[in-house]
Amino acid sequence: MAGLGSCYEGGDGEGKKKDSIYHQVKEFLDKGETLAVATIVSVKGSTPREVGAKMVVTAWGEILGTIGGGCGEADVKREAIEAIRTRKPRTVRIDLLDDISSDSPAVCGGIMNIFIDPWWPERDQEAGSAR
């Protein structure tokens, strides 16, 4: 990219990102595992994280990434394990309004819809008609 009369000063240059959530997804799929990707697809009111925030849940309930700390994550984890078992996606509505009176630090006050999508190797390979 550097032009004429310029030179490159050391370093590894193009800082490749190897830590994206899909790197982690691929790692699990390569081991033949089924996992679930939970994504915030819509929100109303004040929520801890933005639309598009993701969390990966493994078949054993291991969690990578966050969709907002304590706020509803336990519910999502339970549903994700169910989605992995049945291999059927589902949408979960997390209502954070209930939390306001509690002494939990996760007081947010909004509602978020979370799509829980199971991924498994055969499904991932269905990439089909690349044009």
């Binding site: 310029s6 490159y8 000063e9 193009e14």
Partner: peptide
Amino acid sequence: ADEVLVGDMARVLKEM
């Protein structure tokens, strides 16, 4: 920094 380039600045920009 991801990249450190040494050269005539206007010329480097022109090539980018």
